[in-house]
Amino acid sequence: MKASDLSTNEYSVFNATYIKAADDKALMEGLIDGLLQLVNFVKNIPVEKLEYRYAEGKWTIKDVVLHMIDTERIFAYRALRISRGDKTPLPGFEENEYVPFAFANSRSIESLLAEYQNVRKATISFFESLNEDQLLFFGTASNTAISVRAIGFIITGHQNHHLGIISERYL
């Protein structure tokens, strides 16, 4: 199954952007390919660009990388809860409130990439452990219905979305 095969009732309108950005790959292929894609992409960014802001109040590339890590953790946690049959509605999060407390620019890019790799490997391991039934489980996150498999595609598409923004606006 690919992201384009998902039913629109499996994710919110807000997440449609990320579903579209997931490319036309199977879920595990997208997660696995994305691991090396991000690492190679970031390693090729000139060091002087890593703390560059393309406009006042915008995030740096380091901020964006840590945002992708934080978001992946949150979405993987949502997938875990839903895949285990937890029906508790899960709250949203305000990404802009996370960045000032993440201190990404005080960290080396190597430490950010190491953390990203650990998080993505954990995400891959988690999704590999799920059976077909679990991938179809639905829960509520950010006041909307979402399937576990849609969350996996959102993780992939969210990363692709931000790599596109970095390419267009920072480099």
Rank of each mutant, 00 (worst) to 15 (best):
M1N: 03
L6R: 11
S12R: 07
F14W: 14
A16M: 12
T17K: 14
T17S: 15
I19T: 08
I19Q: 03
K20T: 10
A22P: 09
A22G: 12
M28A: 13
M28H: 15
E29F: 10
G30F: 12
L31I: 06
D33W: 10
G34R: 06
L38T: 02
F41G: 05
K43P: 00
K49M: 14
L50P: 07
E51H: 08
E51K: 11
E56C: 05
G57R: 08
K58L: 04
W59L: 04
W59A: 01
T60K: 09
V65N: 03
D70F: 06
E72I: 03
A76Y: 02
G85F: 05
D86V: 01
D86F: 00
D86W: 00
D86Q: 00
E95N: 10
Y98M: 07
P100S: 07
N105H: 05
L112I: 05
A114V: 12
Y116R: 03
N118P: 05
A122M: 12
T123F: 01
T123C: 03
S125M: 08
F126N: 00
D133W: 11
Q134I: 07
F137V: 12
T140D: 15
S142Y: 13
T144V: 14
A150I: 02
F153Y: 15
T156Q: 15
G157L: 11
N160K: 12
H162S: 12
G164L: 05
I166A: 01
